[in-house]
Simulated scan of single mutants.
Amino acid sequence: MTFGKYTSKSFKWLVENDVGYCKYIVDRHMKEMRHPEKRKTINETQGWHKSWEAEDSGLPKQDIKWLKEDEERGLFLKPRPFSDMYGRKRWRKVLKSEKMWFHPPEMPGVVDGSTVPVADSFFRHRVFFWRPVGVWRYSVRCTKPDCPAKDNPKAFLYRCGYGNTVRPICDINGWYFMLTEVLACDACRHLTLYYSLIFPHLNYCNIVWASTHPTYINKLLIIQKRFLRMISHANRYEPSAPLFINYSLLSINKINIFKTCLFMFKFKNYIQNLPSSFHNFFCVNSNIHSYATTKYFNLPFCRTWKHQSFITYRGPHLWNSLNKSLKSSPSLPIFKKHLKNFLIISSL
């Protein structure tokens, strides 16, 4: 069975467990075969947004009817039959693809006594459906400055549904309403997918656990590279370093460096905002000796690699290795921006 409440069950199981339902299906099928003209059909208006019918923010009621039903002036062509995945006959209305301005039917002129026009026919409005890709077939580039496909000459926006906002606009000829199609960037949507599914797991408490031995981190790094190749449609053997640069992403190791340096910047400049347990976490060289040095923090003695992975050693070591322009950033947002750009192009 591929439909109904017993989906995925065999016909033999249906006969053995629910004969009444089996008889109902057979009788209904025989009835549809004897009277095919009474077979239920479902009309669909492909492209129509339900929010356009909202009372407070949608189209006026007098405009909804002619936009959906008027084949000459409305949004849709004549209904076309098609078969769905179950073989049932359906009727579908498709949007017109040759114009963007839609004018309402003309107001009635001379009125005789037999037919009285409804009041709605005098208060209809024009509708402008902005569809540069759907109608003009125009090639639109992504306008985001950090788009991963900004250097790809063949990367264009594609249609991704229609906007749910109806915009009333007033010009010199009166009011009209504007509908729009939604354009999406394939590369930016894949980047959103990465930040939704992968990045939260790599970023959560990264400063605590990501400084462990590379044997454990490399397993997560392989998964991160695999997902990055998947969203960029790259070959499995293609180097991942150019992909990280193209998408402006940090590997799991660089995320740990970023988080650690961020904590050190807060300790140096905003120590009053940190919990009191961190106030004596690091030692400053100026408190030990008075001669000039380029290293702000004092490195504690650590003989083993395990102790060198602690933040008490790793934090001062990373901070002292940063260049002077980064460490002298005037604010936290500027420091984060410059540090991320530095880590993206660096080979740490």
Rank of each mutant, 00 (worst) to 15 (best):
Thr2Leu: 07
Thr2Pro: 10
Gly4Gln: 00
Tyr6Trp: 10
Ser10Met: 13
Phe11Glu: 05
Lys12Arg: 14
Val15Pro: 00
Gly20Leu: 11
Tyr21Pro: 09
Cys22Pro: 00
Cys22Asn: 00
Tyr24Met: 15
Ile25Gln: 11
Ile25Asn: 07
Asp27Phe: 04
Arg28Val: 01
Lys31Phe: 06
Glu32Asp: 14
Lys38Met: 09
Lys38Gln: 08
Arg39Met: 06
Thr41Tyr: 09
Thr41Asp: 08
Ile42Val: 12
Glu44His: 12
Glu44Asp: 10
Lys50Val: 04
Ser51Val: 04
Ser57Met: 07
Leu59Ile: 10
Pro60Ala: 04
Pro60Glu: 03
Trp66Phe: 08
Lys68Glu: 07
Asp70Arg: 00
Glu72Ala: 10
Glu72Ser: 14
Phe76Trp: 04
Phe76His: 09
Pro79Val: 02
Pro79Asn: 05
Pro81Glu: 11
Asp84Trp: 11
Asp84Met: 13
Tyr86Gln: 06
Arg88Gly: 03
Lys89Glu: 11
Lys89Asp: 07
Lys89Trp: 12
Trp91Glu: 08
Lys93His: 14
Lys93Cys: 12
Val94Gln: 08
Ser97Tyr: 09
Lys99Gly: 14
Met100Ser: 06
Phe102Val: 04
Pro105Gly: 02
Met107Thr: 15
Val111Asp: 02
Asp112Ala: 05
Asp112Cys: 09
Gly113Leu: 06
Thr115Lys: 13
Val116Lys: 11
Pro117Trp: 05
Phe122Arg: 04
His125Arg: 10
Val127Arg: 02
Phe128Lys: 09
Trp136Ile: 09
Asp146Trp: 06
Pro153Ala: 00
Lys154Asp: 11
Ala155Phe: 01
Leu157Met: 05
Tyr162Leu: 12
Thr165Val: 12
Arg167Gly: 01
Pro168Trp: 14
Ile169Leu: 05
Asp171Tyr: 01
Trp175Asp: 03
Met178Ile: 10
Ala187Tyr: 04
Leu193Asn: 10
Tyr194Asp: 00
Tyr195Phe: 15
Ile198Trp: 00
Leu202Asn: 08
Asn203Ile: 01
Asn203Glu: 13
Tyr204Met: 05
Ile207Asp: 08
Ala210Gly: 13
Thr212Pro: 01
Lys219Tyr: 01
Ser232Thr: 04
Ala234Asp: 12
Asn235Ala: 07
Glu238Ile: 04
Glu238Asp: 15
Ala241Val: 14
Leu243Gly: 00
Phe244Trp: 11
Tyr247Asn: 01
Tyr247Ala: 03
Tyr247Thr: 00
Tyr247Met: 03
Leu249Met: 09
Asn253Trp: 06
Lys254Phe: 06
Lys254Trp: 07
Ile255Arg: 15
Asn256His: 12
Phe258Gln: 07
Phe258Gly: 07
Thr260Arg: 15
Phe265Lys: 12
Phe267Asp: 07
Lys268Val: 02
Lys268Gln: 06
Tyr270Gln: 11
Tyr270Lys: 10
Leu274Thr: 01
Ser276Cys: 04
Ser276Thr: 15
Ser277Cys: 12
Asn280Ala: 09
Cys283Asp: 08
Asn287Cys: 14
Ala292Cys: 08
Thr294Met: 07
Lys295Met: 14
Asn298Ile: 00
Cys302Met: 14
Cys302Ile: 05
Cys302Thr: 08
Trp305His: 11
Lys306Glu: 12
Ser309Val: 02
Ile311Cys: 06
Gly315Ile: 04
Trp319Asp: 09
Leu322Ile: 03
Leu322Phe: 04
Ser325Leu: 15
Leu326Tyr: 02
Ser329Ala: 15
Ile334Cys: 02
Phe335Trp: 02
His338Ser: 15
Lys340Ile: 06
Phe342Gln: 03
Ile344Thr: 11
Ser346Ala: 13
Leu348Ala: 14
Leu348Ile: 15
